[in-house]
Amino acid sequence: MFLSALLSFVGLGFLCWLLFNLAVYALPFFVAVTVGHYAFENGAAPIGAIAVALFAGAVALILGQVAFATIRSPTIRLAIGALYALPAGLAGFHAVKGLSETGGTGAAWTLIFASIGAIIVGATAWVRIASFAGSETQSGGVDSHHAGYAAREG
């Protein structure tokens, strides 16, 4: 009995860890599945559809990271971040809803837990996409700090 409860707890922890780590990839995964399905339905062989899907998902991920890191307009960065965070939040909603229903929670509490899960997973995806641009911003701050120090030294 104890071993069963322990393994359930470890399994649930692993699923939560996996959900948070994969949250930022919800949009590229959606793009990959959509493009792969479209390619398959239009005559591509299964291997070709998979190759096209992998390429489309990688392009969606890389373009989003590069756009978020290089664009300085807060409005556009907000839109790009939301574009990545909203599908992740939707995935988090359904994952937590499924886990809550499995545990036998009532309908109202299931929706409350699922909504909280959606907010947390969406925020995690937002922080992850924002961290792609964080390293560039931090290096700029370090350079300006060293430049100010060098100017004082003379």
Rank of each mutant, 00 (worst) to 15 (best):
S73G: 07
W126M: 08
H37M: 15
A123L: 12
Q138Y: 13
A23D: 04
Y149A: 15
I119C: 00
P87A: 01
S73P: 01
T75P: 00
N21D: 11
A5M: 05
A69I: 07
A51Q: 12
L27K: 05
A45S: 15
A5R: 14
T70I: 07
L19Y: 04
A44G: 07
S4D: 14
A53S: 15
A53P: 00
L6K: 09
I50W: 06
T124H: 11
P87W: 06
I116W: 01
G36S: 05
A114M: 01
S100M: 10
C16M: 12
E101K: 03
V66Q: 09
A32W: 01
G122M: 03
L83W: 11
V142F: 11
I47F: 14
A150L: 11
G117T: 09
L111H: 03
A118D: 02
G140W: 11
T137M: 11
A56E: 05
G43W: 05
F93E: 05
G36Y: 00
L63K: 02
T137V: 15
P87F: 03
L86F: 04
H145I: 12
F9R: 10
S4Q: 12
L6W: 10
G140F: 15
L99V: 02
G92Q: 04
A125S: 11
T75N: 00
V35L: 10
I62M: 14
I120A: 03
L19G: 08
G57M: 09
R128M: 15
G43I: 07
N42S: 14
N21G: 06
E136R: 14
